Amino acid sequence: MRVAIAGAGAVGRSIAAELLENGHEVLLIDKSPAAIAVEQVPQAEWLLADACEITSLDEAALQRCNVVIAATGDDKVNLVVSLLGKTEYGVPRVVARVNNPKNEWLFNESWGVDVAVSTPRLMSALVEEAVSVGDLVRLLRFSQGDANLVELTLPPESALAGTRVGDVRWPEDTSLVTIIRGSRVLTPGPDDSLEEGDELLFVAAQAREGQLEELLSVRREPEPPRREDDEEADEL
């Protein structure tokens, strides 16, 4: 897979090193000569150019890329790179870094973004995921289809504890993709059962998140009916 990364700062270089280690072909693009640190990621291709200019992207042969990652520290640049990559070069997958959470609403398919990665939101979600049991935590937003990657740790006394996955009527536009149980990562099948403490990862439409959280909530026992003598005692 060929990946172009706009922004050769610490973030861009780290992504490049990881992708290269996994066997992918990587091109790093940056307009700052100070950012061209070939010795730090020698296996990558490097291009000193402005990724917001068509001539630069032509030189980068962006049409040959499977993925474009807009990883600069400037949200305006990341949006322009995303839009050009998607509309001018037809790149199948565009991933963009969100630096300012206030700008996150812009990073959608209208600007050519398939996946928006907000570092503050991601860190906040990971903190919530580590301490929350029984609450739905949104980990990642996908622009296409208005879907999110969400997590919920099945609490004690959940209504679904002990239930087969295949017997659960999940909300529409919701898919259980992984069960993390202790040190194990399970691909859920219909005969697998849910257990207390399971960390469940779903891809779900945003409109279905409330239904999903309610389905997985703690079982609440109905209050016993009040007896006549109890009512008389209250009156006394």
Rank of each mutant, 00 (worst) to 15 (best):
S56V: 01
V94K: 07
P156T: 08
V81C: 07
A44W: 11
V41W: 04
Q144D: 06
E209V: 04
P101K: 06
V168P: 02
E221Y: 08
I5V: 13
P33L: 11
V94E: 09
G182L: 09
R184H: 11
V67L: 14
E151N: 12
L136M: 15
L83G: 07
E59Y: 01
R121S: 12
T174H: 05
D167N: 14
A16Y: 02
N100H: 12
D74G: 06
N148R: 10
R13G: 06
R181Q: 10
L186F: 03
P155I: 12
D230N: 11
T174F: 02
D198A: 06
A159G: 14
R181W: 02
A116H: 12
E195F: 05
N103S: 15
A147Q: 13
N22V: 00
A161C: 12
R208W: 00
G134D: 09
T163R: 13
V127G: 03
L140F: 03
G85N: 04
A204T: 14
V98Y: 03
L212S: 08
I29P: 01
L79H: 06
E104T: 03
L154D: 04
A70I: 04
L201W: 04
E235N: 10
A205G: 09
G145F: 04
V185T: 14
V91K: 07
E109T: 15
L126G: 01
A51I: 02
I15E: 09
D75Q: 10
G145K: 11
N78C: 09
S143A: 15
V218H: 07
R181D: 01
E231V: 13
P190I: 07
D50C: 01
D30Y: 03
R164P: 13
R184D: 14
W170L: 13
W170Y: 14
R97P: 02
